[in-house]
Amino acid sequence: MALNTPQITPTKKITVRAIGEELPRGDYQRCPQCDMLFSLPEINSHQSAYCPRCQAKIRDGRDWSLTRLAAMAFTMLLLMPFAWGEPLLHIWLLGIRIDANVMQGIWQMTKQGDAITGSMVFFCVIGAPLILVTSIAYLWFGNRLGMNLRPVLLMLERLKEWVMLDIYLVGIGVASIKVQDYAHIQAGVGLFSFVALVILTTVTLSHLNVEELWERFYPQRPATRRDEKLRVCLGCHFTGYPDQRGRCPRCHIPLRLRRRHSLQKCWAALLASIVLLLPANLLPISIIYLNGGRQEDTILSGIMSLASSNIAVAGIVFIASILVPFTKVIVMFTLLLSIHFKCQQGLRTRILLLRMVTWIGRWSMLDLFVISLTMSLINRDQILAFTMGPAAFYFGAAVILTILAVEWLDSRLLWDAHESGNARFDD
């Protein structure tokens, strides 16, 4: 018995066209964080690309023209004298008006014999932002004059995390709450300039795509075929072959399989920071003279006294001054041990922890910024005066060393310790 099946006739004509040209192939790229070699397709503007294995951002879609970056830099340069030299806060102490600005706080630190601690604050609040705007201006002028731009481009990517104007702005709020127990506070004209400078700096850093600047100024022929001998440069993120001198053909720094002496430098910085954190938390970090009496505060006791007036601000200072430094030390110690013992479990967790400490590390400088600003506000000789204690130097040095330890660690070593050939990683 035959089955009668109805015929289905399409209502619209289906047209099949042959592909007349070869589909576009992607360029081969190595991930600078996990060293995976993959094919990167062509990316349009405002599109980002991520590593298929570790999800690290390979290409950032946010990109401004150099002219727009230069305009932002010149605007920031105009704001800087007002943000640093004009009063941020006014207080009335014992019937006398006192003005506080950024430069005055750094000068008070240096004047009291601790120039190293003052230079830490100076670099993060004044030096690094000033280098940022002058570097962008150098790129703008240098591109037109045919100057060598490689050193500036190499420095810009590392400079971003040292620009800490946003953290200093939080420190202004913390210092205001600490001082309000002794005097009446009012915002100064410099505060508005400083807030504007923070906003412009944040926007500029978020749109400063150094890798795209490398592509514009020093374009290189990408690798179009897969080759395990391809290496990625950690300076400019170019994937290719080393030249005859073993250097990256684009930025001219040595092109090595792994960062040289990464573990040794990381261990040295980490152990030194552990040693410095002990006096930083045991010795007094601030000293207040009130009517001839002397009151010393460690980091913890200062947080407890701050909690009596504002528990939320005390929580912020606790996280930045105690929780973050010790968390960074514990995480980095764990990561280094996992590399030495070739741990194969929990790779995803370790990668996330490394990215976390990379982002939060700079916030530990908050305590030094609060001390710097408070020193310029309260300084009335023996009637009422505020000065920093010996722990300030140890704390600042420990924070900087932990930042350097994270920067010096080559994250690809975590993958080397893991089993080879993993296309995915999980716990």
Rank of each mutant, 00 (worst) to 15 (best):
residue 352 L to V: 14
residue 131 I to Y: 01
residue 425 F to V: 12
residue 312 A to Y: 13
residue 19 I to P: 11
residue 348 R to C: 12
residue 114 D to C: 01
residue 125 V to H: 06
residue 358 T to V: 08
residue 420 S to H: 09
residue 33 Q to I: 13
residue 90 H to Y: 05
residue 70 A to P: 12
residue 248 C to F: 00
residue 301 S to E: 07
residue 370 V to L: 04
residue 209 N to A: 06
residue 91 I to H: 02
residue 145 L to T: 06
residue 289 Y to M: 02
residue 373 L to I: 13
residue 124 C to I: 04
residue 140 W to R: 03
residue 307 A to Y: 14
residue 18 A to P: 11
residue 243 D to M: 05
residue 238 F to R: 04
residue 4 N to Y: 10
residue 419 E to R: 10
residue 135 S to W: 01
residue 350 R to Q: 11
residue 211 E to V: 11
residue 313 V to M: 06
residue 378 I to D: 00
residue 201 T to Q: 07
residue 46 H to L: 13
residue 145 L to A: 09
residue 296 E to T: 05
residue 92 W to G: 04
residue 113 G to K: 15
residue 147 M to H: 02
residue 112 Q to M: 07
residue 421 G to A: 08
residue 263 L to R: 05
residue 359 W to E: 11
residue 377 L to G: 02
residue 192 F to A: 13
residue 294 R to S: 03
residue 267 W to P: 10
residue 66 L to W: 15
residue 275 V to S: 04
residue 2 A to P: 14
residue 373 L to V: 05
residue 150 R to W: 01
residue 332 M to Y: 06
residue 417 A to Y: 10
residue 247 R to E: 15
residue 90 H to D: 10
residue 385 A to L: 03
residue 202 T to S: 14
residue 132 L to H: 03
residue 33 Q to M: 14
residue 19 I to S: 10
residue 346 G to N: 14
residue 382 Q to E: 02
residue 211 E to N: 11
residue 284 P to D: 06
residue 51 C to A: 00
residue 285 I to L: 07
residue 317 V to K: 00
residue 108 Q to D: 14
residue 87 P to N: 12
residue 345 Q to D: 13
residue 102 V to A: 11
residue 187 A to W: 13
residue 186 Q to N: 10
residue 386 F to Q: 00
residue 292 G to I: 13
residue 207 H to N: 13
residue 274 I to Y: 06
residue 120 M to H: 03
residue 372 S to W: 09
residue 356 M to N: 10
residue 27 D to G: 12
residue 2 A to N: 13
residue 64 W to A: 09
residue 8 I to G: 13
residue 151 P to L: 01
residue 405 A to N: 04
residue 301 S to W: 15
residue 183 A to H: 10
residue 120 M to P: 01
residue 111 K to G: 14
residue 419 E to C: 15
residue 302 G to F: 01
residue 327 T to Y: 07
residue 255 L to Y: 10
residue 281 N to P: 02
residue 149 L to H: 04
residue 255 L to S: 08
residue 268 A to S: 09
residue 151 P to T: 03
residue 59 R to S: 08
residue 413 L to N: 08
residue 213 L to Q: 06
residue 251 C to D: 01
residue 43 I to L: 10
residue 359 W to G: 08
residue 82 F to I: 12
residue 155 M to A: 03
residue 122 F to A: 05
residue 83 A to M: 03
residue 71 A to W: 11
residue 245 R to N: 04
residue 385 A to R: 06
residue 174 V to A: 15
residue 279 P to G: 04
residue 103 M to N: 08
residue 318 F to N: 14
residue 163 V to W: 02
residue 424 R to K: 15
residue 254 P to I: 13
residue 274 I to D: 09
residue 89 L to Q: 08
residue 353 L to V: 14
residue 245 R to T: 06
residue 153 L to G: 08
residue 98 I to F: 03
residue 208 L to E: 11
residue 216 R to T: 09
residue 315 G to E: 06
residue 331 V to Q: 06
residue 426 D to T: 11
residue 165 L to H: 14
residue 223 A to F: 12
residue 48 S to P: 04
residue 328 K to W: 00
residue 117 T to E: 04
residue 117 T to Q: 01
residue 126 I to K: 14
residue 203 V to C: 14
residue 246 G to M: 09
residue 305 S to Y: 06
residue 16 V to A: 07
residue 70 A to M: 15
residue 375 M to T: 14
residue 372 S to K: 14
residue 218 Y to K: 06
residue 289 Y to R: 01
residue 5 T to F: 11
residue 53 R to Y: 11
residue 386 F to S: 00
residue 361 G to P: 01
residue 126 I to N: 10
residue 49 A to S: 11
residue 112 Q to R: 05
residue 89 L to M: 12
residue 205 L to Q: 11
residue 8 I to A: 11
residue 230 L to P: 07
residue 134 T to V: 08
residue 116 I to A: 12
residue 197 L to D: 02
residue 29 Q to W: 13
residue 61 G to T: 14
residue 183 A to V: 03
residue 82 F to G: 06
residue 127 G to L: 01
residue 305 S to K: 06
residue 1 M to C: 00
residue 324 V to K: 02
residue 390 P to D: 07
residue 165 L to G: 15
residue 165 L to V: 12
residue 315 G to A: 13
residue 370 V to H: 00
residue 365 M to F: 04
residue 203 V to D: 03
residue 419 E to H: 11
residue 309 S to C: 07
residue 35 D to A: 08
residue 31 C to L: 00
residue 144 R to V: 05
residue 34 C to Y: 00
residue 280 A to R: 01
residue 46 H to A: 12
residue 36 M to G: 07
residue 200 L to Q: 15
residue 138 Y to I: 07
residue 93 L to I: 11
residue 130 L to W: 05
residue 361 G to Q: 01
residue 364 S to A: 00
residue 247 R to C: 09
residue 157 E to C: 14
residue 105 G to S: 05
residue 240 G to T: 07
residue 262 S to H: 04
residue 64 W to M: 14
residue 42 E to I: 07
residue 162 W to C: 02
residue 117 T to S: 05
residue 367 D to P: 00
residue 214 W to I: 14
residue 318 F to D: 01
residue 369 F to H: 05
residue 125 V to M: 14
residue 90 H to E: 06
residue 403 I to Q: 02
residue 77 L to T: 15
residue 227 D to S: 15
residue 188 G to L: 05
residue 239 T to S: 09
residue 118 G to E: 13
residue 274 I to K: 11
residue 12 K to G: 13
residue 344 Q to C: 11
residue 309 S to I: 01
residue 299 I to N: 07
residue 71 A to V: 15
residue 410 D to G: 00
residue 278 L to C: 07
residue 364 S to Q: 00
residue 100 A to R: 02
residue 287 I to Y: 04
residue 37 L to F: 12
residue 97 R to L: 03
residue 45 S to G: 13
residue 328 K to G: 00
residue 115 A to C: 05
residue 342 K to W: 12
residue 78 L to K: 01
residue 146 G to M: 02
residue 99 D to L: 06
residue 399 V to Y: 01
residue 285 I to S: 01
residue 123 F to M: 02
residue 402 T to P: 05
